[in-house]
Design a protein around this nucleic acid. Structure first.
Lengths: 201, 201
DNA sequence: CCTACCGATCGGTAGG
DNA sequence: CCTACCGATCGGTAGG
């Protein structure tokens, strides 16, 4: 009898590992992920766990990807049905703050944490974090541009500036919420975002 | 002959350790500080190094304190001579962005990094990070309030809201600068801060 | 401030 | 997917 499991079994095991890896990395950081601890958490041997990924770095990349998938589900997808432009931009911002408020990840915004942890390192993890954040910023910029074209924002609205400020306000909310336990942070971010969109003209 | 050095010697050694500890923690994180590596860096044995602090946690607290001292020197003190109110608030913001631009810490803003790393942990390091950030936010709020009293900002300006937004913009600049290498971030933050202060009325 | 040492854990491999 | 193992390193202590 081979110890190998069927492909669906292996896929389920992999999903269970990644679930746990995302939770751990959310609070301890992607560098704080350790193979031994994770293996014990999901009831595998170290070698059994690492067989699914090949190396710690590959595990980190897979955990990051899984976390981004959650972010897409929680923030991106619910807003996709809204009309492109200001309506979708507002929906994205609201879903974003809701995602922070509901504590989807125990350690707060996964992407912000990963960005802080890897912004001064080199390698594929940093590159993937950079790509994910750039894509998100581009998405915000795109909605600002569409809103301008549709006459919902002035034609001279500055998409990169607006996206920069919206992103900054969400980071500020995440910090105030996580570190300082300041529940008013969401309202402050919401007010700031509204003002950014008003002032975009 | 006792292996003990004189008090001034010990103090110099301690300062050298902390210099290096701040640099390492800035890029690797406070949790990434290890006694063995730090000892090798400064040419001590592990036990020789730890004798100065007692434990890794105490070393982390001392490194954080040393980093905060730098922040005060770089941002706080140069602005202290400006008149309280809008003038000093503007000077604080400008010194803050300049501190980011000059890369005073190799890993970007030390306090932001420490905040991300410890915002979901417990213990004295998290408490000290929280205290330092709260004090900084309070300082910004105070200058907004003074500016209102002096008629430089409207009487209904909202100090916590303004401080929240200024802090968020600096965080956004730090991220864009460190992760994305986006040199325009400073100008974006500067513009955002100016707009926050204009809109405070 | 040192040497010498502790148990624990790290990422990873060999071989099955 | 396992057991058994590798060398390296972790934080920290004993004793001087």
């Amino acid at each position: 009898m081979s110890p190998r499991r069927s492909a669906p079994d292996a896929s389920r095991t992999r999903a269970a590992i990644l679930d746990r890896a995302v939770a751990v990395a959310s609070t301890e950081g992607l560098e704080g992920l350790t193979i031994g601890r994770l293996a014990a958490d999901v009831g595998l041997s170290k070698s059994g766990l690492i067989a699914h990924f090949g190396s710690k770095e590959a595990l980190q990349l897979a955990a990051l990807d899984a976390a981004l998938h959650v972010f897409r589900e929680e923030v991106w997808e619910p807003s996709a049905e809204r009309e492109a432009g200001l309506s979708r931009l507002s929906a994205l911002c609201e879903a974003w703050l809701s995602y922070l408020e509901r504590g989807v990840f125990p350690g707060g915004c996964f992407l912000t944490a990963a960005s802080c942890e890897f912004d001064d390192r080199e390698g594929p993890v940093r590159e993937d974090v950079n790509k994910a954040l750039s894509l998100w910023i581009k998405t915000l910029e795109q909605e600002v541009a569409t809103a301008s074209e549709r006459g919902e924002l002035p034609l001279d609205a500055d998409p990169p500036q607006v996206a920069f400020e919206l992103n900054a306000l969400a980071m500020g909310a995440n910090q105030a919420l996580q570190l300082r336990g300041d529940r008013t942070a969401l309202e402050r971010a919401r007010r700031g975002m509204a003002r950014v969109l008003e002032a975009a003209g």
